[in-house]
Design a protein around this nucleic acid. Sequence first.
DNA 1: GCGAGCAGCGTACCT
DNA 2: ACAGGTACGCTGCTCGCG
Length: 777
Amino acid sequence: MKAFILDADHQDNRVRLFLRGEKECIIAEASIEPYFYLVREHGLTHSQVEKCAGVTRVEEVEKEELGRKRKYFRVFVKEPALVPQVSEAFENVADHRENDVSFVYRYLIDNNLYAGRMYDFDVVAGRVKAAKPLENATPDLRMLSFDIETYAPRGRMPDAKKDPAIIIGMKNGKTHVMSWKEDKLRNEKEMLQEFVKSVKHYDPDVIVGYNSSNFDIPYLLKRAQANKVKLLLGRDATEPLLRKGMRSGADINGRVHLDAYDGVEFLTIIGALRLPKNDLDSIYFELRGKHKVPIDKSRIGEMWDAGGKQLDLLRRYNEEDTIAAYEIGREILPLYLELSKIIGLPLYSVSRMSASQMVEWMMVREAFLRGEVTPKRPDRHAVSARMANPIKGAFVKLPEEGLHERIAVCDFRSMYPSIIISHNLGPDTLDCSCCSKPFVAPEVGHKFCTNRKALMPHVLEKLIDERLAVKKEMKNHKPGSEAYRSLHFRQWALKIIANASYGYLGFARARWYSREAAESTTALGRKYIHETMDKAEKAGFKVLYGDTDALFLKLENKSVEDSKKFVDKINSELPGRMELEFQGYYPRGLFVTKREGGAAKKKYALIREDGTIEIKGFEFVRRDWANVAKEAQEQVITAVLREGDTKKAVDAAKKFIELVRKRKLGVEDVKIYTQLVRKPSAYEQQAPHVKAAKRLLEAGYDVSAGDVLEYVVIEGEGSISDRSIPVQLLGDKRYDPEYYINNQVLPAVMKILKELGISEEELRGKGKQQDLKNWFE
DNA sequence: GCGAGCAGCGTACCT
DNA sequence: ACAGGTACGCTGCTCGCG
């Protein structure tokens, strides 16, 4: 059967595989002997281990771990559940290894099977006998998104014990919203049954929700219980299984429960997405350019009771959430599928992993393939010791403030991965005993083996080679075609994992953490960027700025061609896989002065020849600035870069100040977003967002760490914090024009205008010194 | 008792 | 729960003056 492993779990010693073929999904079983390792030390004997209850047999093996040979007992046990138990029993006698590799992962890794990839499975009597890898593309997955609305009386959050679910929306191709006031459904119970029936009928491979692990699925489970029905969403007609722990989850057997919220967080962390906040409305706006129907969540109960137009509006609201979840699913499912194919673990598991976990599981698999033992996770003390001792990072050159012309930007392609590969860096090649001439890292002096390839460089090389091949293959396909799209997601997935590798080396909780390898990586990075800057100056360019792996060259009297030739010259002198890339030419660019003087790093604006503008670091790109300040700054930057028009820039700034002063702005223009990273009581300073959070709490809202707050500074007495009111509680309170001029618009625009020699006074139109208060006559 | 000056907290950005 | 480098608003303390 031509199929791929969509999902897998186990019952006792039997691994259960959900094999997704062209159309059908069948269940097949397989098995493997569960095992783990004990390090042979402290006089522990073979027979001692063998005698332990649950142990079936013991092998004496010699294997490599972190570049060193060691002796282990490979301990086989009766069933998977005994792996943690038996290893625990030896805790005070011998160190264990790989006792935390789950049974399904063990099966996939040890059999060299990659979930997500196509195989020709030989299934006899429901058991997998063999699997032959195929080149075929994965068949299209059936995806269903869903979203629920729940009833609650005004003034409190819904309580799953007593408040019913009232609406369920679903979308596969088309959208279907049902509620039990309409749609021939008489009550909540019938709606729940209808939902289960729809899922069974459509038989999706993937069920997408938004925050469904924490809300929709737990809620529906409780409601099903209250109505004495079962929420049988699994392919084996089972209910979702809620997972507790550090990260809650909801497993649906045989399907992939994709929580789009996880996906959005993941994209945000890797820098592929930036939204003011990660809620469905922000996403809806990002995807469709318009906001969802505005409804007050605390009034959902009333709207339900009112029926008619109110209920229609509520259904519309639900429909938009369902659509948004579906659209996010369409974007992240192909990405997760490619990640799953690369890592080889089931799609559902991968969708719940952080980038570092993805790197780590790739390493675990590759270590197995190389016959190596996986190091154990560091304990709490090791983690805090690692964190207490941070690693020196990248070099950032002080730029030259002001307006500059004719800039070429170059950067090192995948700098850190290239360094790790080119110099064979890793904990397993550090201080080897086999090399008479090891590589010695500059500045830090760590020595690395030059004979045997380390695990991380080995993994990275595979990732990067594969990515180059995929990029090449993409040229054979039309952009927009299905094949192109899938290749795009593949190269993106490969890039994500490669880019996370350096961070992983320096990640305190990593099994393959290596302070030495990580600090050698950054030391080499600093060496390469410094050397390249020196060479650029010698070649007659002016190095305007540089950060980590990027450098900005001012062409002066040289041509763009010259800068490209310079890049070629550098590449001819670089070792291994190191490569400098010409990134682009910019006719104009702007750097500014810090408030306390001196040029600011990590803040600049560039314009391309086609007139498009790139803004980095400025208030314009920060969510914790009001829109009015951001828009004013954008217009000023645009006037300066596109037209070189100082007057236009000044006029734009004045226009915004006037708007503020005349109170022409709405909440959207003046609200400020700030994330609350802890619970409100945990702050020592009463910052504006902390005060806003406390006000929300007082008013009976739920506020928790991680929430992004929206607040407005209103007029009145007291500090800014005293006057920071969350938008939910704004009522008819008015924004403070003085604050928005002096603390928002002016700093944002003056930062730019100051570089053109314009003073705050000139902004006011008169050349004289005047008190800012004059704006408020 | 009061304002100026400043350190440190806190957030979000860049590579 | 991926790294370090950086800017900068705001609070709340210290200090000098009277």
